[in-house]
Amino acid sequence: MKKTRLACTAFAACVSLAAPSAFAQSSVILYGVLDQGINYTNNAGAGAVWEMASGYAQGSRWGIKGAEDLGGGVKAIFQLENGFDVSSGRFFQGDRLFGRQAYLGIHDERFGTLTLGRQYDSVVDYLAQTTANGNWAGFMFSHPYDNDNTDNSFRLGNSVKYASPNLAGFQFGGVYSFSNDTNFSNNRAYSFGGQYENDGLLIAAAYLQANNPGAGSIGAITANDASFIAARMRIFGAGINYAFGSATVGFSYTNSNYKDPTGNNYIGIPLAAPGVKLSTLKYQNFEVNGKYEFTPAFFVGAQYVYTMQNYESSLGNVRPKIHSVGLMADYHLSKRTDVYVQGVYQKVAGDSTQSILDNAFILGTRAPSSTDNQVAVRVALRHSF
């Protein structure tokens, strides 16, 4: 009997020690992408330039993400993601350690996910994947100046985000980003969107608004993180992709409205000539894209974007047009390593704004062209881990 009691006591002790670890299972994953290549631009202000550059088809990054099982289909989750330049080793995203993403939250299988921190807006989460640049092509295929943030030029700090579970192919979500200022609405942002996916069909839409993006260093979109600096930014759009066999085709429309814009961090030059007041800058982007997989290891993709610009200043209202064409070929040497070639052509036509915006500018090139057209070509190697 004594031996039996001892055995039972030992068994109970083992169960009590094992139960907490079985209940609170956790996982931590280290991951990353290295995207490095050589670019040629036919006209970057002072002439043609060859340069080594990092993070175009995908931003070079490393990150840590993890989850702890809290039981009942609930998990505590986190993600920390750093963006960096392979060429120099320096940080991207305003020299932040975890500039791409930094958040923690709770995931529930039935009710969705709630996270807090530095995160993507709903345009990036839902709409961007219907564009070439937000899906398979990356940086150089962005709409002019990434005016609609479909290439995630900025993130939202101080943000609370909700994402629904998958409801028969439908998902939706939203994010609110605090200004962290005594003036509650100064440099705050909010966004929402959704998507429906079923049998090769993807339909998505999103909305984003920010007050005073680029103002200060503590708000939703800070001065060293903004694309456009303005009194107000408002973006909305929708897109559709359809995959059939080895082919995928897509169309997207985005509308961007900037009130009292003063600058753009990609060029660091005022958006109006000296003495001219720019009151409104609007963009409408119409994109058609397609991709064909010749084999599981090799695809070719193409994109055309027609952009209508509305430039309202103290000199009047003008409406230039911007044509952008992109081509890409990608070949996988292995499951985690590929080589790709990209080429983009941009042409600015129609009315003159009498500003730097009359000059073509492909994102990723060193500087705007000295003329109304520009060509950029890239050859690169990419590795993920």
Score class of each variant (00 low, 15 high):
247 A>G: 11
246 S>F: 08
315 L>F: 11
14 C>D: 12
353 T>W: 01
317 N>T: 11
242 Y>Q: 03
343 G>Y: 06
119 Q>V: 03
123 V>I: 12
156 L>D: 00
359 N>A: 12
76 A>N: 06
27 S>L: 09
159 S>F: 01
264 N>V: 10
108 D>E: 11
203 I>M: 10
368 P>K: 01
139 F>W: 08
307 T>L: 08
77 I>P: 06
166 N>P: 03
178 F>Q: 05
99 G>I: 00
9 T>L: 13
17 L>A: 15
12 A>D: 09
63 G>P: 00
170 F>V: 07
11 F>N: 14
244 F>R: 10
145 Y>A: 02
301 G>C: 07
175 V>K: 05
230 A>V: 02
183 N>Q: 11
331 Y>N: 02
21 S>M: 13
287 E>R: 02
229 I>E: 00
340 Y>F: 13
285 N>G: 04
211 N>Y: 04
21 S>A: 13
234 R>Q: 15
222 T>A: 03
85 D>Y: 06
223 A>S: 13
364 G>Q: 03
346 Q>N: 08
268 G>P: 00
261 P>G: 08
231 A>K: 13
82 N>A: 10
279 S>N: 15
44 A>D: 01
210 A>I: 01
215 A>N: 09
319 R>H: 09
82 N>M: 09
47 G>K: 08
282 K>G: 11
18 A>D: 14
38 I>S: 09
145 Y>D: 00
85 D>M: 09
160 V>D: 04
16 S>K: 13
117 G>E: 02
7 A>R: 08
271 L>M: 08
252 S>L: 05
109 E>D: 15
164 S>R: 01
98 F>E: 00
378 R>W: 03
101 Q>K: 06
229 I>H: 02
330 D>I: 06
281 L>H: 01
211 N>W: 04
41 T>V: 08
28 V>P: 02
232 R>K: 15
327 L>P: 14
5 R>F: 14
306 Y>C: 09
176 Y>P: 00
106 I>L: 07
216 G>W: 10
224 N>L: 14
372 D>Q: 09
178 F>P: 01
4 T>Y: 14
275 G>Q: 11
1 M>Q: 15
154 F>D: 01
194 G>H: 06
340 Y>V: 05
111 F>D: 07
275 G>W: 10
96 R>E: 07
102 A>I: 00
146 D>E: 12
246 S>C: 11
177 S>L: 06
203 I>G: 05
49 V>Q: 15
273 A>I: 10
94 G>L: 07
262 T>S: 12
327 L>A: 12
23 F>Q: 12
34 L>Y: 03
51 E>F: 09
18 A>H: 15
358 D>N: 15
91 F>G: 07
261 P>I: 06
76 A>C: 06
31 Y>E: 00
44 A>N: 01
280 T>R: 11
374 Q>S: 06
30 L>G: 13
311 Y>M: 13
256 S>C: 10
84 F>M: 05
6 L>V: 09
158 N>I: 03
41 T>P: 10
303 Q>M: 12
331 Y>L: 04
199 D>T: 12
179 S>H: 14
66 G>V: 00
376 A>C: 05
307 T>H: 04
142 S>C: 09
328 M>L: 15
348 V>F: 01
205 A>P: 03
92 F>G: 06
295 T>L: 15
266 Y>R: 12
197 E>L: 05
154 F>C: 04
139 F>N: 07
191 S>P: 10
162 Y>V: 02
253 Y>K: 01
